[in-house]
Amino acid sequence: MLAKRIIPCLDVDAGRVVKGVKFVDIIDAGDPVEVARRYDQQGADEITFLDITASSDDRETMVHMVEQVAGQVFIPLTVGGGIRALGDIRRMLNAGADKVAINTAAVNRPEFVREASERFGASCIVVAIDAKRVSKASEPNRWEIFTHGGRKSTGLDAVEWAKRMVEYGAGEILLTSMDRDGTKDGFDLALTRAISDAVDVPVIASGGVGNLDHLVAGVREGGADAVLAASIFHFGTYSIAEAKAHMAAAGVEVRL
């Protein structure tokens, strides 16, 4: 049976791993190659690198980092952040990434996703969706797509957007709740379930993991195919192996 995946996410700025709490406070947490190797040894099913480098001068640093990691870590690698053109995708795939995550560029020009999928194949193309709840407590659930770290509303309905991105050729959806990101309160399960039920491709739940029960809930209640977390793994609160043992004990199929 197919295993649910556990994916540690590393935020990378100019070649160093950092973790943004709600994308504002940033703490340095190490060398990407060493961190990736440690996660690989602990049993991570994939690793996602999010390039948060502001300066385009440092883009080449990211390509070099991906090459270094891909030469030593033989599990799938996803790279997101700053993917705006077909050339960016080609560079990352040639460096050894297996998938790229497209976020803002998809909002700015949805056809980019179609072009990328046709050129490189849907299985390489992850569309990252940052969603925030816009409905009041008394209203039916509704979420919209936000950009710029959750500050800028696009007015796009999250469920409709996810469906459209899959129609355009997204092979996977990386779904982040901007309400939960950095809170440690757990995934937005209603959001995860709504997107997961709406699309046929795998959904990675992200944003808000504070303990191992949250991972189980993301799969069970949210219907996620994979769960992504950063700080609980980076600061050694839990190892990937502990996370997997916990999920297995709860009856979730994992790769042990």
Binding site: M1, L2, A3, K4, R5, D45, A122, S123, G171, E172, D200, V201, P202, V203, D225, A226, R255
Partner: peptide
């Protein structure tokens, strides 16, 4: 076994 809907592509560790 579970009746769970399966996504396509088949992606992950099997």
């Amino acid at each position: 076994a579970s009746g769970e809907r399966l996504k396509i592509p088949h992606m992950g560790w099997n």
